[in-house]
Design a protein around this nucleic acid. Structure first.
Lengths: 234, 234
DNA sequence: CGCTGTTTTGAAGGATTTCAATCGATGTGG
DNA sequence: CCACATCGATTGAAATCCTTCAAAACAGCG
């Protein structure tokens, strides 16, 4: 990769959990194997079904992982921010990307080729252990969402999706909590329809829990809002 | 661990994908750090919410991972067979078991303490890389089930659950395919109710696709059955 | 200011759940 | 060996949550 980036990227990388606990020297070697990529707003890292060739680490920007059904219905699997690894799945030999990764804002990322990152992981146990940790965390979140989808009603699922968004590290923790997602986005995150999300939000707005706008939801009353996700009797 | 087990266990282990590609010497060292455990039928490896202290590798038997909601509703997260790792999540420091692991038949397993396996993984990159691969695979399955739950109707989800069961490595591939799961089990695997599963199975039986019994479903007409999972217009 | 894409809302319809009752299989003990 | 107890499976009817479709209101942008 180009040399002028090394220093600033090195600083960023030391805060990326995938690279935690590695020596500066190891980091240097890993970095030398990387390529720097820019993805414009609304561009794609890769598409679902393509041969999985590259692992990415997002340095700047926001992206989303989606899956699309044969019938054309879309589901949002995950929202990505700076520091997140994308497609750790490449370590599986002969895998295809199971999702589409799309840049939501302009994105700045490092990429490694499959063989290259696999070799590095085999060499540096700490690197693959970190990778294992990160996939495990994502796995736990997916498991929770699965259980939610299997057992909880729509209103609660939407509330939980909003709370998860707020509690993400990297998002400001200060009230009022503003979430920039459209009704459609929320529907695709919670396995429901645009219409149901809209109705639910309207109801919450009337109760004074949130203020809603075009592509935006702001939680005014955090504590009362929590009750929807937790206690709601039915 | 006791010495008399070493030889037979070594043979089994060489077929466990978590230990693929390790040298006999490395395997030996890893094995020395393991304990051997027997879990009787219907016994528990661990309970959801307990401090995660041990990683297991199932040598013999069948087990299941379940999550239970605060309201007491149960969800089946995964069914485990010989060779499967259990709770790779321990590598996350200070994690709690996110699920309960219960022996469905008598089980025979190896276990490692958290610190011990973490150290081994850091030391042997191949070990953690294998771990990463296995979590990734489970993650992919979970992702697919999530998308299914979010977008598909009950009938298709049940059909898919049955097919996944059949296509599991380790299960005989020969027709007729017999699946030993109760209606309740299937309901907990597909996010529906016992009643809906029963109705669906009855309907399939009338169409001659399956024969159903107490705690058992046999697929007679595999190709026609596939259509339910794939083509079914609505 | 008109255009485009997002959001809202109503009304109708449908898939699935819930509840209740019954049936059937399996295993046990008298 | 049969009556009984138990647990799983079936089935009907009513209720409900959510979707679907259609139409209108609204926001932001060139």
């Amino acid at each position: 990769m180009s040399h002028d980036l090394d220093q600033s990227v090195l600083n960023t990388l030391s805060q990326v959990s995938l690279f935690e606990g590695l020596t500066p020297h190891q980091l240097q070697i890993i970095l030398q194997a990387a390529h720097h990529r820019h993805i414009p707003r609304h561009g794609y890292f890769f598409h679902q079904g393509e041969e999985a060739t590259h692992l990415y680490v997002l340095l700047q920007g926001k992206a989303r992982l989606t899956q699309i059904t044969p019938e054309g219905q879309q589901v949002i699997i995950h929202l990505l921010g700076p520091g997140d690894p994308v497609a750790i799945i490449v370590v599986l030999s002969h895998a295809k990307y199971p999702v589409t990764a799309r840049a939501h804002t302009h994105c700045d990322a490092l990429s490694w080729e499959r063989d290259s990152i696999t070799r590095l992981m085999e060499q540096y146990g700490r690197l693959s252990l970190n990778g294992l940790k990160m996939v495990s965390e994502r796995f736990l979140e997916m498991q929770d969402r699965y259980r939610e989808l299997a057992t909880e009603r729509v209103e609660r699922r939407i509330a939980r999706a909003l709370l998860r968004q707020i509690n993400k590290p990297g998002n400001g923790r200060a009230a009022p909590h503003k979430i920039t997602l459209s009704r459609q986005d929320l529907a695709e995150m919670t396995g429901t329809t645009l219409y149901t999300v809209s109705r639910t939000c309207s109801s919450w707005e009337q109760q004074g829990l949130i203020t809603a706008g075009r592509g935006r939801i702001t939680i005014c009353n955090y504590t009362d809002f929590l009750n929807i996700a937790e206690d709601l009797p039915r």
